[in-house]
C-alpha cells in the first residue's frame, strides 16, 4: 500500500470522522517495501496542492524515513532548471521535455514507491488498529463498531 494512499484515508468508524485526529492514520510495526514505478512529472507538479504535507511528514517520520522539508516543494523545485512558464509551454505544444530534480525523484519515491507491505494503521482519535496484509489494508469493522 502506497504512502500517497494514506493522504485519502481515515478511520472507518463513523463517530471518528468529525475528529481531526482520525486523519492521518498512523502506521505501526510497518514492514516497508520499494515497488518501482515510472515517474510522472506532470502528476507530481499537479498533486502538490492536494498533499496534506504536515500529515505526510508525520507519517514519514513515524516510519523512520528521512525527514521531509518543513514546507512542500513548489512546482519549479521539481523541474531541472525551474518550470517554464505556461506560455512557453503552449508555444512548444507540450513537447518540452522536462527533467525531474532530485527533489522530484525523492517525492516520487516517498509517495508512490514506498509501500507498506505488512503492519497496522492506527486511528489517532479512537486507537482502532487496521491491519495491512500483503499490501492490502483491511478496514472492515467488527459488528459492534459498525
Amino acid at each position: 500500500m502506497k504512502l500517497l494512499t494514506l493522504n485519502f484515508l481515515t478511520c472507518a468508524i463513523k463517530t471518528c470522522k468529525t475528529q481531526p485526529a482520525s486523519f492521518p492514520l498512523h502506521p505501526r510495526d510497518a514492514e516497508l517495501e520499494i515497488v518501482e514505478t515510472d515517474m510522472n512529472l506532470p502528476f507530481l507538479k499537479n498533486i502538490l496542492p492536494r498533499l496534506m504535507w504536515d500529515e505526510l511528514r508525520t507519517i514519514t517520520s513515524e516510519l523512520g524515513l528521512p525527514d521531509l522539508p518543513p514546507t512542500p516543494p513548489t512546482r519549479s523545485n521539481l523541474v531541472e532548471g525551474g518550470e517554464k512558464d505556461a506560455v512557453a509551454e503552449e508555444e512548444e505544444q507540450e513537447e518540452v521535455v522536462e527533467e525531474p530534480t532530485q527533489t522530484a525523484k525523492d517525492l516520487h519515491r516517498i509517495l508512490l514507491e514506498t509501500c507498506i507491505k505488512e503492519g497496522k494503521l492506527v486511528c489517532g482519535a479512537c486507537g482502532h488498529e487496521y491491519k495491512v496484509m500483503e499490501g492490502v489494508a483491511n478496514f472492515l469493522l467488527p459488528g459492534h463498531l459498525v
Binding site: M1, L4, T5, F8, F43, L112, G135, V136, N138, L140
Partner: peptide, 9 residues
Amino acid sequence: IFLDVANGD
C-alpha cells in the same frame, strides 16, 4: 497513477 484497492465496507 494507481493507488491501491483497500478491503472495506
